[in-house]
Design a protein around this nucleic acid. Structure first.
Lengths: 207, 207
DNA sequence: AACATTTCATACCGAACGGTATATAGGGGT
DNA sequence: ACCCCTATATACCGTTCGGTATGAAATGTT
Protein backbone atom coordinates (compact mmCIF):
# COMPACT_ATOMS: atom_id res chain seq x y z
CA UNK A 1 0.00 0.00 0.00
CA UNK A 2 2.62 2.51 0.98
CA UNK A 3 4.46 4.20 -1.84
CA UNK A 4 6.80 6.05 0.41
CA UNK A 5 8.77 8.27 -1.92
CA UNK A 6 6.06 9.55 -4.22
CA UNK A 7 7.00 8.05 -7.55
CA UNK A 8 10.43 9.58 -7.83
CA UNK A 9 13.79 8.97 -6.26
CA UNK A 10 12.54 5.91 -4.45
CA UNK A 11 15.85 5.38 -2.80
CA UNK A 12 14.58 2.74 -0.44
CA UNK A 13 17.83 1.07 0.30
CA UNK A 14 16.22 -1.89 1.97
CA UNK A 15 14.87 -4.86 0.09
CA UNK A 16 14.98 -5.90 -3.52
CA UNK A 17 15.13 -2.86 -5.81
CA UNK A 18 12.31 -2.46 -8.29
CA UNK A 19 13.14 -3.20 -11.86
CA UNK A 20 11.08 -0.48 -13.50
CA UNK A 21 10.90 3.29 -13.48
CA UNK A 22 7.62 4.45 -11.88
CA UNK A 23 7.59 7.69 -13.87
CA UNK A 24 8.02 5.83 -17.11
CA UNK A 25 5.37 3.30 -16.13
CA UNK A 26 2.98 6.09 -15.21
CA UNK A 27 3.57 7.75 -18.56
CA UNK A 28 2.70 4.50 -20.28
CA UNK A 29 -0.45 4.19 -18.16
CA UNK A 30 -1.42 7.72 -19.14
CA UNK A 31 -1.27 6.78 -22.80
CA UNK A 32 -3.62 3.87 -22.21
CA UNK A 33 -6.07 5.91 -20.16
CA UNK A 34 -5.98 8.68 -22.71
CA UNK A 35 -6.70 6.34 -25.56
CA UNK A 36 -9.33 4.19 -23.84
CA UNK A 37 -10.79 6.17 -20.96
CA UNK A 38 -10.86 5.12 -17.33
CA UNK A 39 -13.33 2.30 -17.38
CA UNK A 40 -12.41 0.85 -20.75
CA UNK A 41 -8.75 0.64 -19.82
CA UNK A 42 -8.36 -2.79 -18.27
CA UNK A 43 -5.69 -3.75 -15.82
CA UNK A 44 -4.39 -6.26 -18.35
CA UNK A 45 -3.92 -3.52 -20.93
CA UNK A 46 -2.33 -1.22 -18.38
CA UNK A 47 0.14 -3.74 -17.04
CA UNK A 48 1.13 -4.78 -20.54
CA UNK A 49 1.72 -1.20 -21.65
CA UNK A 50 3.59 -0.42 -18.45
CA UNK A 51 5.72 -3.51 -18.75
CA UNK A 52 5.04 -4.65 -15.20
CA UNK A 53 2.85 -7.22 -13.49
CA UNK A 54 -0.29 -6.56 -11.54
CA UNK A 55 1.20 -7.03 -8.07
CA UNK A 56 3.94 -4.55 -8.94
CA UNK A 57 1.35 -2.07 -10.10
CA UNK A 58 -0.73 -2.42 -6.97
CA UNK A 59 2.30 -2.22 -4.71
CA UNK A 60 3.51 0.98 -6.34
CA UNK A 61 0.34 2.82 -7.29
CA UNK A 62 -2.35 1.47 -4.97
CA UNK A 63 -5.20 0.53 -7.25
CA UNK A 64 -6.71 1.45 -10.58
CA UNK A 65 -8.36 4.58 -9.27
CA UNK A 66 -5.24 5.88 -7.59
CA UNK A 67 -3.23 5.10 -10.70
CA UNK A 68 -5.68 7.07 -12.79
CA UNK A 69 -5.51 10.08 -10.54
CA UNK A 70 -1.72 10.05 -10.68
CA UNK A 71 -1.97 9.77 -14.46
CA UNK A 72 -4.38 12.68 -14.46
CA UNK A 73 -1.91 14.71 -12.43
CA UNK A 74 0.76 13.94 -15.00
CA UNK A 75 -1.64 14.80 -17.80
CA UNK A 76 -2.39 18.19 -16.37
CA UNK A 77 1.25 18.83 -15.64
CA UNK A 78 2.44 17.90 -19.13
CA UNK A 79 -0.40 18.13 -21.60
CA UNK A 80 -2.43 20.91 -20.05
CA UNK A 81 0.33 23.21 -19.01
CA UNK A 82 -0.55 25.31 -22.04
CA UNK A 83 -3.61 26.49 -20.12
CA UNK A 84 -1.49 28.32 -17.60
CA UNK A 85 0.73 29.87 -20.24
CA UNK A 86 -2.24 30.81 -22.41
CA UNK A 87 -3.67 32.86 -19.57
CA UNK A 88 -0.54 34.98 -19.62
CA UNK A 89 -1.32 36.29 -23.09
CA UNK A 90 -1.76 40.02 -23.41
CA UNK A 91 -5.33 40.18 -24.63
CA UNK A 92 -8.46 38.13 -24.00
CA UNK A 93 -8.62 37.33 -27.69
CA UNK A 94 -5.10 36.03 -27.58
CA UNK A 95 -5.90 33.97 -24.50
CA UNK A 96 -8.73 32.30 -26.38
CA UNK A 97 -6.61 31.87 -29.47
CA UNK A 98 -3.84 30.16 -27.55
CA UNK A 99 -6.20 27.97 -25.58
CA UNK A 100 -7.98 26.73 -28.65
CA UNK A 101 -4.96 26.26 -30.86
CA UNK A 102 -2.90 24.58 -28.17
CA UNK A 103 -5.79 22.26 -27.44
CA UNK A 104 -5.92 21.42 -31.11
CA UNK A 105 -2.21 20.75 -31.21
CA UNK A 106 -2.43 18.56 -28.12
CA UNK A 107 -5.34 16.50 -29.32
CA UNK A 108 -4.24 16.13 -32.91
CA UNK A 109 -0.61 15.90 -32.03
CA UNK A 110 0.67 12.42 -32.49
CA UNK A 111 -1.49 9.87 -34.19
CA UNK A 112 -5.25 9.82 -34.53
CA UNK A 113 -7.12 12.71 -33.03
CA UNK A 114 -8.30 12.01 -29.53
CA UNK A 115 -10.28 14.05 -27.08
CA UNK A 116 -9.24 15.45 -23.74
CA UNK A 117 -8.57 12.82 -21.11
CA UNK A 118 -10.79 14.70 -18.70
CA UNK A 119 -13.69 14.83 -21.10
CA UNK A 120 -13.33 11.18 -22.03
CA UNK A 121 -13.21 10.09 -18.43
CA UNK A 122 -15.93 12.38 -17.13
CA UNK A 123 -18.39 11.45 -19.83
CA UNK A 124 -17.46 7.78 -19.77
CA UNK A 125 -17.71 7.32 -16.02
CA UNK A 126 -21.21 6.81 -14.80
CA UNK A 127 -21.33 3.42 -13.13
CA UNK A 128 -18.73 3.20 -10.44
CA UNK A 129 -15.95 5.72 -10.37
CA UNK A 130 -18.10 8.53 -9.10
CA UNK A 131 -14.96 9.67 -7.35
CA UNK A 132 -13.16 9.91 -10.69
CA UNK A 133 -15.99 11.94 -12.11
CA UNK A 134 -16.04 14.32 -9.20
CA UNK A 135 -12.31 14.77 -9.42
CA UNK A 136 -12.36 15.61 -13.12
CA UNK A 137 -15.32 17.94 -12.67
CA UNK A 138 -13.53 19.80 -9.90
CA UNK A 139 -10.35 20.21 -11.93
CA UNK A 140 -12.32 21.50 -14.87
CA UNK A 141 -14.20 23.96 -12.69
CA UNK A 142 -10.95 25.32 -11.38
CA UNK A 143 -9.66 25.82 -14.92
CA UNK A 144 -12.80 27.65 -15.89
CA UNK A 145 -12.58 29.81 -12.79
CA UNK A 146 -9.06 30.80 -13.80
CA UNK A 147 -10.32 31.83 -17.21
CA UNK A 148 -13.10 33.85 -15.58
CA UNK A 149 -10.57 35.73 -13.48
CA UNK A 150 -8.44 36.37 -16.53
CA UNK A 151 -11.40 37.79 -18.42
CA UNK A 152 -12.38 39.96 -15.47
CA UNK A 153 -8.89 41.34 -15.62
CA UNK A 154 -9.23 41.82 -19.36
CA UNK A 155 -12.42 43.73 -18.86
CA UNK A 156 -10.77 45.92 -16.27
CA UNK A 157 -8.01 46.52 -18.78
CA UNK A 158 -10.60 47.70 -21.25
CA UNK A 159 -9.71 44.71 -23.37
CA UNK A 160 -13.28 43.45 -23.58
CA UNK A 161 -16.48 45.36 -24.29
CA UNK A 162 -18.45 46.52 -21.26
CA UNK A 163 -21.39 44.49 -22.49
CA UNK A 164 -19.78 41.09 -22.11
CA UNK A 165 -19.94 39.07 -18.90
CA UNK A 166 -16.59 37.44 -18.09
CA UNK A 167 -18.27 34.46 -16.48
CA UNK A 168 -20.47 33.75 -19.46
CA UNK A 169 -17.71 34.35 -21.95
CA UNK A 170 -15.47 31.91 -20.11
CA UNK A 171 -18.27 29.38 -20.00
CA UNK A 172 -18.73 29.80 -23.73
CA UNK A 173 -15.05 29.36 -24.42
CA UNK A 174 -14.82 26.26 -22.26
CA UNK A 175 -17.86 24.90 -24.02
CA UNK A 176 -16.07 25.23 -27.33
CA UNK A 177 -12.97 23.59 -25.90
CA UNK A 178 -14.94 20.63 -24.67
CA UNK A 179 -16.87 20.44 -27.90
CA UNK A 180 -13.59 20.20 -29.77
CA UNK A 181 -12.69 17.23 -27.62
CA UNK A 182 -15.87 15.47 -28.58
CA UNK A 183 -15.35 16.16 -32.24
CA UNK A 184 -11.78 14.95 -32.03
CA UNK A 185 -12.92 11.83 -30.24
CA UNK A 186 -15.38 11.29 -33.06
CA UNK A 187 -12.57 11.22 -35.55
CA UNK A 188 -12.94 14.74 -36.91
CA UNK A 189 -10.24 15.93 -39.27
CA UNK A 190 -7.82 18.52 -38.09
CA UNK A 191 -9.03 21.00 -40.72
CA UNK A 192 -12.56 20.63 -39.43
CA UNK A 193 -11.50 21.52 -35.91
CA UNK A 194 -9.33 24.32 -37.20
CA UNK A 195 -12.28 25.71 -39.11
CA UNK A 196 -14.44 25.74 -36.01
CA UNK A 197 -11.70 27.45 -34.04
CA UNK A 198 -11.02 30.10 -36.67
CA UNK A 199 -14.69 30.88 -37.03
CA UNK A 200 -15.13 31.18 -33.29
CA UNK A 201 -12.17 33.51 -33.00
CA UNK A 202 -13.55 35.63 -35.83
CA UNK A 203 -16.71 36.04 -33.79
CA UNK A 204 -14.78 37.08 -30.70
CA UNK A 205 -16.15 40.30 -29.15
CA UNK A 206 -14.07 43.32 -29.97
CA UNK A 207 -13.66 46.44 -28.01
CA UNK B 1 -33.78 -13.46 -33.41
CA UNK B 2 -36.65 -12.52 -35.61
CA UNK B 3 -38.70 -9.57 -34.49
CA UNK B 4 -41.17 -9.82 -37.30
CA UNK B 5 -43.34 -6.78 -36.95
CA UNK B 6 -40.79 -4.12 -36.08
CA UNK B 7 -41.72 -3.30 -32.53
CA UNK B 8 -45.28 -2.29 -33.18
CA UNK B 9 -48.50 -4.09 -33.88
CA UNK B 10 -46.92 -7.48 -33.35
CA UNK B 11 -50.17 -9.27 -33.99
CA UNK B 12 -48.67 -12.72 -34.08
CA UNK B 13 -51.77 -14.73 -33.45
CA UNK B 14 -49.90 -17.93 -32.80
CA UNK B 15 -48.31 -18.85 -29.50
CA UNK B 16 -48.39 -17.26 -26.11
CA UNK B 17 -48.88 -13.52 -26.37
CA UNK B 18 -46.18 -11.35 -24.90
CA UNK B 19 -46.97 -9.63 -21.66
CA UNK B 20 -45.22 -6.34 -22.29
CA UNK B 21 -45.37 -3.49 -24.76
CA UNK B 22 -42.18 -3.37 -26.85
CA UNK B 23 -42.48 0.37 -27.43
CA UNK B 24 -42.81 1.02 -23.75
CA UNK B 25 -39.93 -1.31 -22.97
CA UNK B 26 -37.78 0.43 -25.56
CA UNK B 27 -38.60 3.80 -24.05
CA UNK B 28 -37.48 2.48 -20.67
CA UNK B 29 -34.28 1.15 -22.21
CA UNK B 30 -33.63 4.54 -23.76
CA UNK B 31 -33.81 6.18 -20.36
CA UNK B 32 -31.20 3.78 -19.03
CA UNK B 33 -28.89 4.20 -22.01
CA UNK B 34 -29.27 7.95 -21.81
CA UNK B 35 -28.43 8.06 -18.15
CA UNK B 36 -25.60 5.55 -18.19
CA UNK B 37 -24.22 5.32 -21.73
CA UNK B 38 -23.96 2.20 -23.82
CA UNK B 39 -21.25 0.28 -22.06
CA UNK B 40 -22.13 1.27 -18.53
CA UNK B 41 -25.74 0.20 -18.96
CA UNK B 42 -25.78 -3.44 -17.93
CA UNK B 43 -28.30 -5.97 -19.10
CA UNK B 44 -29.45 -6.35 -15.51
CA UNK B 45 -30.21 -2.63 -15.28
CA UNK B 46 -31.93 -2.66 -18.63
CA UNK B 47 -34.15 -5.63 -17.94
CA UNK B 48 -35.12 -4.27 -14.56
CA UNK B 49 -36.06 -0.87 -15.98
CA UNK B 50 -37.91 -2.47 -18.87
CA UNK B 51 -39.75 -4.81 -16.56
CA UNK B 52 -38.89 -7.91 -18.56
CA UNK B 53 -36.44 -10.78 -18.29
CA UNK B 54 -33.32 -11.27 -20.31
CA UNK B 55 -34.67 -14.01 -22.60
CA UNK B 56 -37.63 -11.79 -23.44
CA UNK B 57 -35.31 -8.95 -24.27
CA UNK B 58 -33.12 -11.05 -26.50
CA UNK B 59 -36.12 -12.61 -28.24
CA UNK B 60 -37.65 -9.23 -29.02
CA UNK B 61 -34.68 -6.95 -29.60
CA UNK B 62 -31.83 -9.25 -30.63
CA UNK B 63 -28.96 -8.27 -28.38
CA UNK B 64 -27.62 -5.30 -26.49
CA UNK B 65 -26.20 -3.61 -29.56
CA UNK B 66 -29.41 -3.98 -31.58
CA UNK B 67 -31.40 -2.73 -28.60
CA UNK B 68 -29.18 0.32 -28.37
CA UNK B 69 -29.55 1.16 -32.02
CA UNK B 70 -33.32 0.90 -31.75
CA UNK B 71 -33.16 3.14 -28.70
CA UNK B 72 -30.98 5.56 -30.65
CA UNK B 73 -33.59 5.62 -33.42
CA UNK B 74 -36.24 6.45 -30.87
CA UNK B 75 -34.01 9.11 -29.35
CA UNK B 76 -33.50 10.85 -32.66
CA UNK B 77 -37.17 10.55 -33.49
CA UNK B 78 -38.37 11.98 -30.18
CA UNK B 79 -35.62 13.97 -28.55
CA UNK B 80 -33.77 15.29 -31.57
CA UNK B 81 -36.70 16.15 -33.75
CA UNK B 82 -36.08 19.77 -32.80
CA UNK B 83 -33.07 19.70 -35.11
CA UNK B 84 -35.28 19.33 -38.14
CA UNK B 85 -37.68 22.02 -37.04
CA UNK B 86 -34.86 24.36 -36.05
CA UNK B 87 -33.53 24.25 -39.59
CA UNK B 88 -36.81 25.66 -40.81
CA UNK B 89 -36.25 28.93 -39.02
CA UNK B 90 -36.11 32.03 -41.15
CA UNK B 91 -32.59 33.22 -40.41
CA UNK B 92 -29.31 31.50 -39.70
CA UNK B 93 -29.19 33.25 -36.35
CA UNK B 94 -32.58 31.91 -35.49
CA UNK B 95 -31.52 28.42 -36.57
CA UNK B 96 -28.62 28.59 -34.16
CA UNK B 97 -30.79 30.05 -31.44
CA UNK B 98 -33.36 27.29 -31.75
CA UNK B 99 -30.77 24.54 -31.95
CA UNK B 100 -28.99 25.70 -28.83
CA UNK B 101 -32.02 26.50 -26.74
CA UNK B 102 -33.85 23.33 -27.68
CA UNK B 103 -30.76 21.31 -26.86
CA UNK B 104 -30.66 23.02 -23.50
CA UNK B 105 -34.31 22.27 -22.88
CA UNK B 106 -33.82 18.65 -23.86
CA UNK B 107 -30.78 18.08 -21.73
CA UNK B 108 -31.94 19.98 -18.70
CA UNK B 109 -35.54 18.97 -19.11
CA UNK B 110 -36.55 16.47 -16.51
CA UNK B 111 -34.23 15.78 -13.63
CA UNK B 112 -30.50 16.28 -13.44
CA UNK B 113 -28.80 17.71 -16.50
CA UNK B 114 -27.47 15.03 -18.79
CA UNK B 115 -25.61 15.18 -22.03
CA UNK B 116 -26.65 14.03 -25.45
CA UNK B 117 -27.01 10.27 -25.78
CA UNK B 118 -24.89 10.36 -28.90
CA UNK B 119 -22.08 12.24 -27.23
CA UNK B 120 -22.18 10.02 -24.18
CA UNK B 121 -22.09 6.87 -26.25
CA UNK B 122 -19.54 8.00 -28.77
CA UNK B 123 -17.09 9.22 -26.19
CA UNK B 124 -17.70 6.31 -23.86
CA UNK B 125 -17.31 3.58 -26.45
CA UNK B 126 -13.74 2.70 -27.15
CA UNK B 127 -13.27 -0.95 -26.31
CA UNK B 128 -15.78 -3.06 -28.16
CA UNK B 129 -18.78 -1.39 -29.74
CA UNK B 130 -16.84 0.13 -32.58
CA UNK B 131 -20.01 -0.41 -34.54
CA UNK B 132 -21.92 1.77 -32.08
CA UNK B 133 -19.31 4.47 -32.37
CA UNK B 134 -19.38 4.43 -36.12
CA UNK B 135 -23.16 4.61 -36.13
CA UNK B 136 -23.25 7.62 -33.82
CA UNK B 137 -20.50 9.36 -35.74
CA UNK B 138 -22.36 8.87 -39.00
CA UNK B 139 -25.61 10.22 -37.60
CA UNK B 140 -23.84 13.25 -36.24
CA UNK B 141 -22.10 13.90 -39.54
CA UNK B 142 -25.43 13.85 -41.31
CA UNK B 143 -26.84 16.37 -38.86
CA UNK B 144 -23.89 18.66 -39.39
CA UNK B 145 -24.21 18.32 -43.15
CA UNK B 146 -27.82 19.44 -42.88
CA UNK B 147 -26.74 22.50 -40.96
CA UNK B 148 -24.10 23.24 -43.58
CA UNK B 149 -26.71 23.13 -46.32
CA UNK B 150 -28.97 25.41 -44.32
CA UNK B 151 -26.18 27.93 -43.87
CA UNK B 152 -25.30 27.80 -47.53
CA UNK B 153 -28.90 28.67 -48.21
CA UNK B 154 -28.71 31.46 -45.64
CA UNK B 155 -25.66 32.85 -47.34
CA UNK B 156 -27.42 32.73 -50.68
CA UNK B 157 -30.28 34.58 -49.02
CA UNK B 158 -27.88 37.26 -47.97
CA UNK B 159 -28.56 36.26 -44.40
CA UNK B 160 -24.92 35.70 -43.55
CA UNK B 161 -21.91 37.88 -44.32
CA UNK B 162 -19.94 37.00 -47.42
CA UNK B 163 -16.89 36.47 -45.28
CA UNK B 164 -18.20 33.48 -43.37
CA UNK B 165 -17.79 29.91 -44.56
CA UNK B 166 -20.96 27.87 -44.04
CA UNK B 167 -19.01 24.70 -43.43
CA UNK B 168 -16.84 26.24 -40.77
CA UNK B 169 -19.72 28.05 -39.14
CA UNK B 170 -21.70 24.82 -38.93
CA UNK B 171 -18.70 23.04 -37.49
CA UNK B 172 -18.38 25.80 -34.90
CA UNK B 173 -22.04 25.59 -33.98
CA UNK B 174 -21.95 21.82 -33.66
CA UNK B 175 -18.85 22.15 -31.54
CA UNK B 176 -20.76 24.37 -29.13
CA UNK B 177 -23.67 21.94 -29.10
CA UNK B 178 -21.43 19.06 -28.23
CA UNK B 179 -19.59 21.12 -25.67
CA UNK B 180 -22.88 21.87 -23.97
CA UNK B 181 -23.48 18.14 -23.71
CA UNK B 182 -20.20 17.66 -21.96
CA UNK B 183 -20.88 20.48 -19.55
CA UNK B 184 -24.33 19.12 -18.84
CA UNK B 185 -22.88 15.69 -18.26
CA UNK B 186 -20.47 17.28 -15.83
CA UNK B 187 -23.35 18.59 -13.77
CA UNK B 188 -23.29 22.17 -14.98
CA UNK B 189 -26.15 24.36 -13.84
CA UNK B 190 -28.75 25.41 -16.32
CA UNK B 191 -27.82 29.08 -15.93
CA UNK B 192 -24.23 28.26 -16.78
CA UNK B 193 -25.25 26.62 -20.03
CA UNK B 194 -27.70 29.41 -20.76
CA UNK B 195 -24.93 31.94 -20.26
CA UNK B 196 -22.68 30.15 -22.72
CA UNK B 197 -25.50 29.99 -25.25
CA UNK B 198 -26.46 33.63 -24.90
CA UNK B 199 -22.88 34.75 -25.23
CA UNK B 200 -22.35 32.65 -28.32
CA UNK B 201 -25.49 34.01 -29.93
CA UNK B 202 -24.37 37.53 -29.16
CA UNK B 203 -21.20 36.82 -31.07
CA UNK B 204 -23.11 35.49 -34.06
CA UNK B 205 -21.94 37.06 -37.35
CA UNK B 206 -24.30 39.75 -38.57
CA UNK B 207 -24.90 40.88 -42.06
C1' DA C 1 -58.63 -32.86 -26.29
C1' DA C 2 -54.22 -32.86 -28.55
C1' DC C 3 -50.84 -30.23 -31.03
C1' DA C 4 -47.89 -26.43 -32.67
C1' DT C 5 -45.98 -22.27 -31.51
C1' DT C 6 -44.40 -18.57 -28.92
C1' DT C 7 -43.30 -16.37 -24.43
C1' DC C 8 -41.92 -16.65 -19.75
C1' DA C 9 -38.96 -17.74 -15.56
C1' DT C 10 -35.01 -19.91 -13.63
C1' DA C 11 -30.77 -21.28 -13.72
C1' DC C 12 -26.71 -21.49 -15.95
C1' DC C 13 -22.47 -20.64 -19.32
C1' DG C 14 -17.60 -19.08 -20.39
C1' DA C 15 -15.04 -14.95 -20.33
C1' DA C 16 -13.33 -10.85 -18.47
C1' DC C 17 -13.22 -7.75 -14.71
C1' DG C 18 -10.44 -5.62 -10.47
C1' DG C 19 -7.79 -7.29 -6.94
C1' DT C 20 -4.80 -10.61 -4.00
C1' DA C 21 -2.42 -14.83 -1.63
C1' DT C 22 1.75 -17.15 -1.90
C1' DA C 23 6.13 -18.41 -2.78
C1' DT C 24 10.55 -17.12 -4.77
C1' DA C 25 14.33 -13.95 -6.01
C1' DG C 26 17.42 -10.16 -5.06
C1' DG C 27 19.21 -6.51 -2.68
C1' DG C 28 21.30 -3.90 2.02
C1' DG C 29 22.47 -4.12 7.28
C1' DT C 30 25.05 -6.29 10.72
C1' DA D 1 27.07 -15.79 6.42
C1' DC D 2 22.76 -14.75 8.05
C1' DC D 3 18.51 -11.99 8.54
C1' DC D 4 15.25 -8.69 7.13
C1' DC D 5 12.89 -6.40 3.74
C1' DT D 6 10.94 -5.54 -0.68
C1' DA D 7 9.90 -6.67 -5.60
C1' DT D 8 8.79 -10.28 -8.71
C1' DA D 9 6.03 -14.08 -11.00
C1' DT D 10 2.29 -17.29 -11.01
C1' DA D 11 -1.84 -18.68 -9.94
C1' DC D 12 -5.93 -17.74 -7.99
C1' DC D 13 -10.19 -15.20 -5.70
C1' DG D 14 -15.21 -13.62 -6.01
C1' DT D 15 -18.04 -10.79 -8.93
C1' DT D 16 -20.09 -9.19 -12.93
C1' DC D 17 -20.40 -9.17 -17.76
C1' DG D 18 -23.32 -10.41 -22.20
C1' DG D 19 -25.73 -14.21 -23.70
C1' DT D 20 -28.31 -18.87 -23.58
C1' DA D 21 -30.25 -23.75 -22.56
C1' DT D 22 -34.26 -25.64 -20.67
C1' DG D 23 -38.72 -26.58 -19.21
C1' DA D 24 -43.19 -24.78 -17.91
C1' DA D 25 -47.11 -21.69 -19.14
C1' DA D 26 -50.29 -19.67 -22.36
C1' DT D 27 -52.43 -18.95 -26.65
C1' DG D 28 -54.50 -20.32 -31.63
C1' DT D 29 -55.39 -24.28 -34.73
C1' DT D 30 -57.39 -28.59 -35.78
Amino acid sequence: MKCSAPLALASATRGRPREFDPDQALAAALQVFWRRGYESASMAELTEAMGITKPSLYACFGNKEALFKKALDLYERDKLKYIGTALEAKTAHEVAERLLNCALATHCGASDPQGCLGVISMVGCTAEAESIRADVVARRASSEAAVVRRFEQAKADGDLPESVCPTKLASCLMTVLQGLSVKAQGGAKREDLQGAIDTFLTMWPRR
